[in-house]
Design a protein around this nucleic acid. Structure first.
Lengths: 223, 223
DNA sequence: CGCGCTCTACCGGTTTCCCGGTAGGCGAAA
DNA sequence: TTTCGCCTACCGGGAAACCGGTAGAGCGCG
């Protein structure tokens, strides 16, 4: 029985290329592709899935929130995080969300195949960069500067949408909450992160890898 | 005779995946991979190359400068730009540099195969998004070259400081000009770039490399 | 059961942004 | 020399951000 895999990344070309890469392993079958976290959830609700290769930075619902929700509904699914960077906080957040693998895109393609095999066997796979990050996080535990401020799921969602240039009202519409509530989240974000305007929040979101660097095409987004 | 292709992208995984994708076409042979513009030039100097799939955003020498230098030394090589964005400035710069194709990563993998076939035949291939961008540039000012929203030195300075989270007044103090003048620069930036708030400006500045955010991987630095 | 945290929501006030103008100085190019 | 682009500077108004509160509902935990 082949492993039913879902590829989640906002770049269709990357998905297609990954699909070609995974096709080398007859035991792997890519059954669906998703361009956002919402699509991942919809796919998992509609068909059986064994494993998801999940990009962290996606427009709409990001990979961390998607992982948390996905595993809440389907605990048996294996999740492998895929990101351009190995930022400590988001590695930790993703692992806490229940992912069992994390690879950076700087790694070789074979690394992904190895990770899938490992996760399929029920074990956890981290690429070297990420392993170093996790190790240093463990060593730092209890140190003075230890914890970078942890963000709640809601705060991360709001942060991402702020970084995409949406106003509080637009974010409220998107998340189905009042603009005033978005305002509170934004203020809490700024307090936690010691940042004081949306430009700094946008920078933070991008450098932390929670926001895709730039999704918008020249003509503008349909949102 | 198969087409000798070089893949240039800073993500090894993407290169490997693309390689798998291109392997479907027996007429294509990926003869080398590069992680930066410098590597592309070194490869082209060492072995015969017919076509380069060139990512725009690469550390060190970017894809646009690499294209310009590559074609100066090897005018016969076909270059296809590959980018996550369809920003007008990117497209125009790359085409001016001599590239004969441009695709965004949001496109399907087949799009890349089509582009390679087209460029191989000596023609130019632009994916729909990019074609629309070029068309709008033509419609806007009647001239491709005139349409480029080139930023002035002052505008670049202001953009960078906006992206760093400074207010107009703070920027004015820093540059020794009135806040109202900074305001004008900000509005001109937004008009030129078709962006409408500081968050989007920050994103743009970061992706353009104007704002220094490209921190190295988190190798365990006590942040 | 309180306790703490999160998410929700609103109030009021100040600052900054955002968008539309106008306009003068200045240097380079036509 | 006239025109053009750039930098400078201001006015006015509406929108959004920013900062300080208060407060109820839900939930997990000791």
């Amino acid at each position: 029985m082949s492993l039913r895999i879902v590829l989640a990344d906002d770049h269709q070309m990357f998905r297609h290329a990954l699909r070609a890469l995974l096709a080398r392993e007859p035991a792997f079958k890519v059954v669906a592709e998703a361009a956002s976290g919402d699509e991942v959830l919809a796919i998992a609700a509609a068909q059986p899935v064994d494993l998801v290769c999940m990009d962290i930075a996606m427009p709409g619902m990001n990979g961390i929130d998607a992982t948390r929700r996905l595993l809440a509904a389907h605990p048996h699914i294996g999740v492998i995080g895929l990101s351009a960077f190995a930022d400590r906080q988001f590695v930790i957040d993703l692992l806490e969300a229940g992912a069992r693998g994390y690879i950076t895109k700087a790694e070789a393609g074979d690394e992904l195949l190895r990770a899938i095999h490992t996760v399929r066997e029920g074990r956890t796979y981290l690429c070297p960069d990420v392993a170093a990050t996790v190790a240093s996080a463990l060593l730092d535990r209890g140190s003075l500067y230890a914890a970078a401020p942890r963000l709640t799921e809601r705060e991360r969602q709001v942060l991402q949408l702020i970084a995409e240039g949406l106003t509080s009202m637009q974010i409220g519409d998107r998340l189905h909450i009042a603009a005033s509530t978005v305002d509170v989240h934004r203020r809490n974000l700024m307090r936690k992160l010691d940042l004081h305007n949306v430009a700094e929040l946008a920078r933070y979101a991008i450098t932390q890898g929670i926001s895709p660097t730039r999704q918008a095409l020249d003509g503008g987004l349909p949102n």
